[in-house]
Design a protein around this nucleic acid. Structure first.
Lengths: 331, 331
DNA sequence: CTGAAAGCGCTAACAG
DNA sequence: CTGTTAGCGCTTTCAG
């Protein structure tokens, strides 16, 4: 099965290359009759324009790169779903590039090398420990960037994120208003919602109540490690409320509480984050903060294409809304 | 920042295009001195060879497409990890394409269209309800394919899968040998391990014991639906053993059992599949069958590149090994 | 409305 | 060991 090219079509249809090109690119200056004739030949020959050649000629690949840290949260799947769906309707292709957490410097260089060589039109970056370096290196090549999970904005850049500060500010405030102030915050590495800002949200709420907050503990992302940690922790600590940066840790807390004879929510309330499947599978079911992961992916792709096509952009920073989902682990 | 091309390098280094091309392609016929000179210029000018142009010239994109059904299991993440890591060391790029479960016919056509137009070198397909159609259409363009989760093999095709039949055959046999024969099998849509073969494994084991097996129930992939289903189910059924096609359903069974006052594993044993995080987060922890998802991804990519580069291939069908992980939900 | 021709940036014989 | 010269398949002025 020989590859059929634009030449074959042009010959077969008795028109020039240019005309065929115009037809497949939807130019409207072609006479309807000719267009039909060309279209017929295209279909008959099953001609599929070579995107690579087109990419060379136009210096545009309609290819977008998505970069995410390998060991990141399970939500990449949904996020990719959002990105994928959006890319499909917007006629873009998506390449993925995973980075190790190690984030060696030459790892980043290697990544940038790949991105530039493959001439992708733009990049979607997930917030991670090396974000600043990545942005700097990539943008030095004039490559448009959209970041998911952190706030950036510039001529050729944009970002999609949830207001992390607000999440914890709201949660803390509502408890403080009720006179509940013994809140413990647990967080594992989790980059979709910025940890530093979550902490700031707590601090702000406490401050406004004339208190200070510094009950922050880092835990492992591995349940096998966080669970025993909590079991131990609850032997000597009994916070009124446990808030976790990710559902998995919240479930660990719930299970560890049970192990220690602590009743949830009667003795201790637990709140997770991300509204993952975990939250309905545990017992009691978990109150958690929903973050619209799928949408964030779709929005990122959309924003990037706007930048690429010089479409009008309301804002280079898009804040998506979170939502507290009440279940059984809180009163 | 103007793009620097091979012309710039050749001029600056005082050599011909061909020589520069040889250098960047690692041809060893170039004199060391010239090579060094060229290399120096490349570095100085920060020249990054345009893969698109190279792709056009060589009719090879070093681009591999990965296609997976959108709503599939959460393991795509790990699988993509394996694919990503392998692609990095093998110098390939990976594009992803999600398909809806709906699997409309023109959806598939659209997919094929994209794959062909973008001139990817090969495709990695996940087993799904439309696999046969996909394979047929894609391979009609002479495009190499590797399938994950089903068995296929041909000149330009290969597959990576786990022996599903064996999994259930082994499990069932071990119970039947102990005189335990009241086993219920629950499965949701789950394509990494073929459901039909899982059932066959049961049947074979039962048959060899002079019995027949047909205790198969389909359940929803959504915990919110499967859980209440099980709660209800256990009101009238008390199998000795519950085996689920995916951990999530096993957890639903465990939780529903507790709800019904059934003790696990004393009154009923439960076994899941995939060894997901769910399995350690539930209570009791779940005995489950581990499937090497990450490896399957890496192997798929590797096999595909072997096909692409005409490397010797031991077998076009690679069976990966599963492993029963015993935890608390079984005796 | 359509065609001719010059690229896009790189590879691959073929000479030398 | 190195240079010359056609392409790879499509887009895009520029004429007509």
């Amino acid at each position: 099965m020989k590859k059929v090219t634009i030449y074959d079509v042009s010959r077969e249809a008795g028109v020039s290359l240019a005309t065929v090109s115009r037809v497949i690119n939807g130019s409207n200056v072609v006479k309807e009759a000719t267009r039909q004739r060309v279209l017929e030949v295209i279909k008959r020959l099953d001609f599929k324009p070579n995107e690579v050649a087109r990419g060379l000629a136009k210096s545009k690949t309609t290819m977008i790169a998505v970069v995410f840290p390998q060991a990141l949260f399970a939500h990449v799947k949904e996020m990719i779903g959002g990105i994928g769906d959006a890319s499909r309707t917007l006629k873009y292709n998506v390449t993925i590039h995973t980075t190790d957490d190690i984030g060696e410097d030459d790892m980043i260089d290697e990544l940038v090398e790949k991105l530039i060589k493959s001439r992708v039109d733009g990049v979607i970056l997930f917030n991670n420990d090396n974000l600043a370096t990545e942005i700097e290196k990539i943008s030095s090549y004039d490559m448009p960037i959209v970041v998911i999970g952190d706030r950036i904005s510039a001529e050729n850049q944009g970002s999609i994120y949830v207001d992390a500060r607000k999440i914890t500010y709201e949660l803390a405030t509502s408890y403080l208003d009720k006179g509940v102030s013994d809140i413990a915050f647990f967080t594992a590495r989790q980059n979709l919602v910025k940890k530093e800002e979550l902490v700031e949200g707590f601090k702000q709420a406490y401050e406004e109540h004339g208190l200070t907050f510094d009950n922050v503990t880092n835990v492992s992302t591995h349940y096998e490690e966080s669970y025993p940690y909590f079991v131990d922790y609850f032997k000597t600590h009994r916070p009124q409320v446990v808030i976790a940066g990710y559902d998995k840790e919240a479930v660990a807390a719930i299970n560890a509480a049970r192990e220690n004879g602590i009743r949830v929510p009667e003795d201790m309330e637990v709140i997770g984050m991300m509204n993952t499947t975990y939250s309905v599978m545990c017992n009691p079911t978990l109150t958690t903060v929903n973050v619209p992961v799928y949408n964030m992916g779709a929005l990122a792709l959309r924003l990037l294409t706007k930048i690429l096509n010089d479409e009008p952009i309301e804002s280079h920073e898009v804040v998506v809304k979170h939502l507290l989902i009440k279940r059984e682990s809180t009163k």
